[in-house]
Amino acid sequence: MMDNKINLLVIDDDDINIFIIKKIVEKTGYNVNMVAKANGLLAIEHLKATFGHTDFPQLILIDINMPVLNGWEFLDAYEALNVTKKVDMYMLSSSVYENDIEKAKTYAKVKGFISKPLSIERLIELFKLLA
């Protein structure tokens, strides 16, 4: 159990996935402030609003297929923000396309590709990497 609060941003347009991730977060035993945004544009607006604040995310889980700004477009928009703070980002997708997995590797900020559904063990692993 960590005393420090972990700020987690989940970018996904599927309410069921958000619900599942929220339940998994609760079961980790970590102190987590989870914010969910339904698309990349809302996530970028959230990042701009929390920039320089203590609730700026340390971990971002990004779905690929979303309306308005998809996961790839979010990453391009994120690059333009010139964030200097260390943020761990992972693509979290149900995509099984090898080209999506390969494309994720082309983004320096993306640490990995996680296939849905997210497991408690995998999330705890990600939280430990933040320390």
Results as ranks from 00 to 15, higher is better:
Gly112Met: 02
Lys85Asn: 11
Val87Lys: 08
Met91Cys: 11
Val110Gly: 10
Lys105Ala: 13
Asp55Ala: 02
Asp63Tyr: 03
Lys116Asp: 08
Val68Gly: 06
Ser93Pro: 09
Trp72Met: 09
Lys105Ile: 07
Ile114Glu: 00
Tyr107Ala: 01
Asn99Asp: 12
Ala104Ser: 14
Lys111Thr: 10
Leu118Ala: 03
Asn65Arg: 08
Val83Lys: 02
Pro117Tyr: 07
Ala108Arg: 11
Ala77Trp: 09
Ile62Trp: 02
Tyr90Lys: 04
Asp55Val: 05
Leu92Lys: 03
Ser119Asp: 03
Thr50Cys: 09
Val68Trp: 02
Lys111Arg: 14
Leu69Asn: 07
Asp76Arg: 15
Ile60Glu: 00
Lys85Gly: 14
Ala49Ser: 08
Lys109Tyr: 14
Asn65Tyr: 14
Pro57Arg: 05
Trp72Asp: 01
Glu98Gly: 00
Tyr90Phe: 12
Val110Leu: 09
Ala36His: 05
Ser119Asn: 06
Ile62Ser: 15
Asp88Val: 08
Tyr90Pro: 02
His46Arg: 02
Ser93Glu: 03
Ser95Gly: 10
Ile62Val: 12
Lys85Ile: 14
Asn70Cys: 01
Met34Ser: 09
Asp63Trp: 07
Ala108Tyr: 15
Asn33Ser: 13
Ile44Leu: 09
Leu41Glu: 12
Ala43Ile: 01
Met34Thr: 07
Val96Leu: 03
Met89Thr: 10
Gly40Asp: 07
Leu81Tyr: 02
Asn99Cys: 10
Val83Ile: 15
Ile62Arg: 03
Ser94Lys: 07
Tyr30Glu: 11
Leu61Pro: 05
Tyr30Ile: 00
Leu75Ile: 04
Tyr78Ile: 08
Lys37Ala: 11
Lys37Arg: 08
His53Ala: 15
Ala77Gly: 06
Glu45Gly: 11
Glu45Arg: 14
Leu92Asn: 06
Leu42Gln: 07
Asp55Gly: 07
Met91Lys: 06
Asn65Gln: 05
Leu92Ala: 02
Phe113Gly: 00
Glu79Phe: 14
Ile120Lys: 12
Ser115Gln: 12
Gly40Asn: 02
Ala80Asn: 14
Val68Ser: 05
Glu45His: 05
Leu69Ala: 06
Met34Asp: 03
Phe51Leu: 13
Gly112Phe: 06
Glu79Cys: 08
Met66Thr: 10
Gly40Val: 00
Asp55Met: 06
Gly71Trp: 06
Ala38Tyr: 13
Asp63Cys: 09
Pro67Met: 09
Lys109Ser: 15
Lys48Leu: 11
Leu118Tyr: 01
Asn33Ala: 07
